[in-house]
Design a protein around this nucleic acid. Structure first.
Length: 771
DNA sequence: ACTTAGTAAATTCTC
DNA sequence: TTTACTAAGT
């Protein structure tokens, strides 16, 4: 910890913080009043500058409570808090308001919920909840989901909200039929969420704007509380975020924004690059500091990155340079297919680790889409290399976990219709679709929330006696436990309540391996609540649920473990590794097919590649495959246009081998690759990696334990093999032409004698062995 | 009302 | 390859 003894009066304190910084870094740190724009090139020590700047402020008399630091990911917020903690002590660091836009504003909104017509227990809807609400609304309006896909509606509504457009404005400007219908759905969607006492992610920002706009006293309070505001990744802010920031900073004007327009990669979710481009116009008195010295990468890597990004138009002027050595040239791996690509990547990584003494945590593989991790995982598992995947299927997206959380949400906010609908018949209670339809209709007609309608179940027409009984039993579980909210701790309440719903029992009784894992996952959620309660004795179910809603898949606690990382380039933002591999540089994949036509999209893809390249400190490897499995089918593609854009001088020459694949030149002193030689076998790591906090990854889904051997029948059904004659009750006799999957997922492709070809699940289809 | 079998569709990225 | 929805069967 640095010393906090005040220095001579009249002179700024904390000069010691400035030593060891370059001139522009020091300027950024010492400039704590007034508007400040920091243009921070990749690897220019941005995080260091930000944390030092905060420390400098604290040293000069700013109270930690007066500082608001906004980031985009929990990861970034976490890292910032930690590093400030080292500088000024944890106590002080904790008092700073640092977090994501969404989490900070959720916190503020809970405090003032009544002012905008919500209760403090409002639910935060994630993407799935939104889609569910939209489907329900479309149903109600009689709009077909075939004609108008709900996900598209969701996207249009979200982008409208990102630009702070109300449903009235949207409906007014709607031209096409699609837009008009979206307008109708938008209106009902907004009504439904309000009735559910729920907000989606976009609402968290827009509701804050409304709160500040309509309540001058709240605005004044918050402006005075947050006298110093700092925004990271400013190039990724959208209209709403921009507006909130402007409102909060209007009084004191101590606004510091940091960003790099070259790294703007979230246009698709409403990020408006103009926010950073126009900062100087918005704040004419702004100081502008450019951090242009890169401390991260070799000259070669920086040159490659520059040769790519210079093709984009409309950049803020900046010249990134480095004192670092020239470094090694970039390797390009040309591969036949995705499988070979994965193999070559593992081989390349293995040999570089040996020759450069890298440990696994020094290496990252980056790709455009999450689906690409599959082939890589297989290859890594085969060669026993420790890896972990950032993101992937989150623990919280599993059905049983979502159901459990839905039950808990109902407890704190019974008006949450989406959650009730999710679990009202889970486990089956005899409340079927027909009844639910009727209740929904009644709710809509009488302008009630679903829960309120359930309370009047005996007044709803056409209800069967049995259904009424089932509904009142369901209601009594909820009501009984609602009365205990102030009696019991969150953990014990959750425990008793979830037990009472019968959800865990349902899985436990099924006794299949699958359902036992699900039961286990429910237990893990309950354990997790207990753990969190231990850590924070002020924990409530409301704050717990909020915390869960706002974490993301990139918040990976295993980051520190010594493994090779695999992630999307989006997830890699802000990270750095000595050795970086970027896979799948193919036309149609990177850039994505839909970007090929649209120049704006193409520029965004190019920025994404720029982000990817600049993650590398010493070595960069790029790869592409001529064909790969996509949507379960082989597709062919040409190398990415981006490969041709990279300065040739930065790329190592390569030679074509007989097989048509490229073998990069081996460095002379290095021995040829030897498979798994001298390696201590390690357990495949995917099994252990967890998504967040103390919740371990469930065994199921990740149990890569049984390798998926194609064309090899699983042990349970030894007689299913290619060429086997079988008989199906409906399709008649036929011959198995292919087998895929294993165990429960084993599928047989059967060519029936009548000429039909079908893919059947072996476990379900009643295939009879004949011949 | 619920289960099951089969088909269709989806796969970008995040809070 | 996996999931999500629909239609038919129990």
């Amino acid at each position: 910890m640095l010393n906090l003894v005040p220095s001579e009066p009249g002179q700024p304190r904390g000069q010691d913080l400035l030593t060891g910084l370059n001139a522009s870094q020091a300027e950024a740190v010492a400039n704590i009043t007034g508007p400040l724009l920091i243009i921070a090139g990749a690897g220019s020590g941005k995080t260091r500058v930000l944390t030092y700047r905060l420390a400098y402020m604290l040293r000069n008399g700013v109270a930690p409570q007066q500082i608001l630091a906004l980031t985009f990911t929990n990861k970034a917020a976490q890292e910032m808090k930690e590093r400030i903690g080292h500088l000024v002590g944890e106590q002080t660091a904790r008092a700073i308001w640092a977090g994501t836009f969404h989490s900070i504003f959720a916190r503020i909104l809970r405090q003032y919920a009544e002012r905008i017509g919500y209760t403090p227990a409002f639910t935060i809807y994630d993407t799935d909840d939104q889609t569910a609400a939209i489907k329900a609304v479309m149903n109600q309006l009689g709009i077909s989901q075939q004609v108008l896909p709900p996900s598209g509606v969701r996207n249009r509504i979200s982008s409208a909200k990102n630009t702070m457009m109300s449903w009235q404005e949207y409906a007014r400007s709607a031209k096409s039929v699609v837009e008009q219908q979206t307008g109708q759905i938008f209106e009902q969607y907004e009504r439904r969420l309000r009735q559910s006492n729920a907000m989606d992610f976009d609402d968290l920002l827009n509701a804050t704007i409304v709160l500040l706009r309509d309540n001058p006293d709240v605005l004044a309070t918050l402006q005075d509380r947050f006298r110093y505001i700092m925004v990271d990744e400013y190039q990724d802010t959208n209209r709403s975020q921009y507006t909130v920031i402007s409102m909060l900073a209007a009084r004191h004007g101590n606004l510091c924004v940091v960003g790099d327009d070259a790294q703007s990669i979230y246009r698709w979710r409403g990020a408006d690059i103009r926010n950073i481009l126009d900062f100087e116009r918005d704040y004419p008195k702004a100081t502008v500091v450019r951090l242009e010295q890169n401390y991260r990468s070799t000259k070669t890597i920086l040159a490659a990155a520059h040769s790519v990004i210079k093709r984009n138009s409309g950049q803020l002027k900046k010249d990134l340079w480095t004192d670092n050595p020239e470094g090694e040239k970039i390797t390009v791996l040309a591969c036949r297919d995705d499988r070979e690509e994965a193999e070559m990547i593992t081989r390349t990584i293995r040999s570089r680790m040996a020759s450069h003494n890298y440990s696994p945590k020094d290496v990252a593989i980056l790709y455009r889409t999450n689906a690409q991790s599959q082939a890589l995982e297989d290859a890594f598992r085969r060669s026993n290399m420790a890896y972990h995947i950032v993101s992937g299927v989150s623990f919280y997206k599993r059905k049983e976990v979502k159901d459990t959380l839905a039950y808990l949400r109902i407890l704190v906010n019974p008006d949450d219709s989406e959650s009730i609908l999710r679990v009202i018949n889970e486990p089956a209670r005899g409340i079927g679709n027909t009844s639910i339809e009727r209740i929904q209709q009644y709710a809509a007609q009488n302008n009630l929330s679903f829960f309120a309608a359930l309370n009047q179940i005996d007044r709803i027409p056409l209800m069967q006696g049995r259904t009424i009984k089932a509904v009142s039993d369901f209601m009594s579980i909820i009501n009984r436990h609602r009365e205990l909210i102030n009696e019991l701790s969150p953990a014990s309440l959750a425990q008793a309540y979830i037990e009472a719903t019968g959800l865990p029992q349902m899985y436990k009784l099924q006794q299949s391996e699958d359902s036992l894992d699900r039961w286990n996952n429910i237990e893990r959620v309950l354990d997790h609540i207990a753990e969190q309660q231990e850590l924070n004795d002020e924990l409530t179910l409301v704050t717990y649920l909020e915390q869960i809603s706002l974490i993301s898949d990139t918040d990976d606690p295993q980051m520190g473990s010594n493994r090779i990382s695999m992630m999307t380039m989006h997830a890699a933002k802000g990270l750095e590794f000595p050795l970086v591999v970027i896979a799948g540089l193919e036309q149609g994949l990177f850039p994505l097919a839909k970007a090929e036509q649209d120049p704006d999209e193409q520029e965004e893809e190019r920025r994404l590649l720029y982000v990817g390249i600049t993650r590398a400190r010493e070595q960069l490897v790029l790869s592409y495959a001529e064909q790969r499995y996509r949507f379960g089918e082989i597709t062919f593609s040409r190398p990415s246009m981006f490969l041709a854009e990279i300065d040739k001088d930065t790329i190592a020459p390569s030679g074509r081998s007989m097989t048509g694949t490229t073998v990069t030149q081996q460095r002379p002193q290095k021995a040829p690759f030897q498979p798994t030689q001298g390696r201590v076998p390690q357990r495949p790591s995917a099994v252990e990696h967890n998504e967040y906090s103390q919740i371990p990854m469930p065994k199921r889904y990740t149990s890569a334990s049984q390798p998926k051997n194609r064309n090899v029948p699983s042990a349970g059904t030894p007689s299913m093999r290619v060429g086997q004659r079988v008989k199906h009750p409906m399709f008649g006799p036929g011959t198995i032409s292919a087998i895929s999957g294993a165990g429960q997922n084993e599928k047989a492709t059967v060519l029936f004698d009548n000429g039909q070809r079908k893919q059947l699940m072996v476990a379900f289809a009643r295939l009879e062995i004949i011949g």
